[in-house]
Design a binder for these strands. Structure first.
Length: 449
DNA sequence: GCATGATCATGC
DNA sequence: GCATGATCATGC
């Protein structure tokens, strides 16, 4: 009897599968597997479908691939790889529709949507999207996106209606009349010709074989959503067990006290240290997110902020907020002000700490934070004083850090010429509200561990 | 070393 | 082209 191979991931654990799958991003099959290059001399187009097969066989090491059950059977997750292409203007789009399961005309008329074979196989998909290039060997195609996907929400309703429309046509004995134009997201596209025509129920006319597919436009819609948003929490069980806050915070545990270089190594990534968003990017990567937006934070309107502490525990910088329009402040009430609404939000603070000569930086802790009520009142004082001075034609002299323990006003502009009009004193350099670094220190000391 | 002024880098 | 988050520079 042959020995079952030990997999590099836990096939019962979605998290483990994602983590393993995500390592594909930015790499090719040649980089990530020891797949034999049997097609050295042939162009990619002659090996259609090979990418998916190789991905399953050499990366995920599937034992055997059952046609009708999801690939990661134990958790009902289907693996789908699909090609992207680059347009002349550089934009990346889906190269083609995504083919799903073949439609069994005879069996499908007995199914209902919720119990359908289609849904059981495709409602939970792990997409591996790679960049197809005409003259490249498929082993060298660059993998751009790896993301799980559920048929849910509005999409699910539309897909359900599409599915029902297709099934109704088959029930009516019109399988031979099916067309992709019948539906919106889910199409019934032709697949294969050599098989000849298939039998259909309720009619003697043979019908060409068809498969369900996500239409190209719909694949692009999926792609767009994958591009600008990614989830940190991969599985509902995490939230159930640890709570929302806990499941986010736990993601940082493995990195506590590590130096940034060590974190990069641990994550097997290489970031540009010189980039100004280096620490923010690193924080997102610790959360398992490689894109700019974090879905959970977007939905909950959580603002992530990075703070670097000096050796003496004092934040190197105060925290900036967007510049204000002098006239807005002059006219508005505190309650309707921008600064007020910004401070009402929940923050997610990621704290790094530098060594004495500031050559090394370690991740220290991360925590959710919102401003305590008393401190919001302090910020209110600063805002009201700012309003007063602008209206008193004294907008050169706005509240300094020494005037309030929580907040102050400072320039926030591109350069001296980047100005905004004051009510009475003409153009002045753009300014914004800041939270004092000394105040932040106090809050950091109180929160997290 | 700190407070404040000034500006950079990125992404939309 | 500009807003935004972040960081640098200067002067006391």
């Amino acid at each position: 009897m042959h020995q079952k191979k030990k997999l590099k991931y836990d096939e019962k654990d979605p998290k483990s599968i994602y983590e393993y799958a995500k390592k594909l991003i930015g790499q090719s099959l040649r980089d990530t597997t020891s797949a034999p290059d049997l097609h050295k001399d042939s162009h990619a187009k002659t090996v259609k479908g090979k990418f998916g097969q190789y991905l399953e066989k050499y990366y995920f090491e599937f034992e055997n691939n059952s046609e009708s059950r999801p690939d990661f059977e134990k958790i009902g997750l289907e693996l789908k790889s699909n090609p992207l292409k680059k347009l002349r203007d550089g934009k990346i789009v889906a190269k083609e529709r995504i083919i799903l399961n073949i439609i069994d005309y005879v069996k499908i008329i007995e199914e209902d949507w919720e119990g359908s074979h289609f849904l059981s196989k495709n409602q939970f998909i792990l997409f591996v999207m790679y960049l197809y290039e005409k003259d490249k060997n498929f082993l060298d195609f660059l993998i751009k996106y790896v993301q799980s996907w559920k048929i849910e929400g509005k999409d699910r309703e539309i897909i359900k209606q599409d599915w029902e429309k297709i099934v109704k046509k088959i029930k009516d004995g019109k399988a031979h009349e099916l067309s992709e134009g019948d539906t919106f997201y889910l199409g019934a596209c032709r697949k294969g010709w050599k098989e000849g025509l298939r039998k259909q129920p309720n009619s003697n006319i043979g019908a060409p074989q068809r498969a369900f597919s996500f239409k190209q436009k719909y694949v692009n819609a999926i792609l767009t959503r994958i591009k600008d948003a990614e989830v940190a929490i991969k599985d509902i069980s995490e939230i159930e067990e640890e709570g929302f806050e806990g499941s986010i915070l736990n993601k940082f545990n493995p990195f506590k006290r590590l130096e940034v270089k060590e974190i990069e190594e641990k994550l097997n990534i290489k970031l540009n240290l010189k980039s100004k968003n280096y620490y923010a990017t690193l924080a997102r990567r610790m959360l398992g997110v490689s894109k700019k937006k974090i879905v959970e934070f977007e939905k909950a309107d959580v603002t992530m902020k990075i703070i670097r502490l000096r050796h003496n525990e004092l934040p190197k910088e105060s925290m900036s907020f967007p510049y204000f329009k002098y006239k807005d402040v002059a006219m508005q009430d505190w309650e309707e002000s921008e600064f007020h609404s910004q401070l009402e939000k929940k923050f997610f603070l990621v704290i790094y700490k530098m060594n004495k000569d500031e050559t090394k930086v370690r991740f220290q802790k991360a925590f959710f934070w919102n401003i305590p009520y008393e401190d919001l009142q302090e910020a209110k004082k600063v805002w009201i004083e700012t309003k007063k001075r602008i209206n008193d034609k004294n907008s050169e002299n706005l509240p300094k850090k020494s005037e309030n323990k929580v907040s102050h006003v400072r320039p926030h502009a591109k350069d001296k010429s980047d100005t905004d009009e004051t009510p009475y004193e003409g153009e002045k350099i753009k300014k914004g509200f800041w939270l004092n670094n000394t105040y932040l220190k106090e809050q950091i000391d109180k929160n997290g561990y």
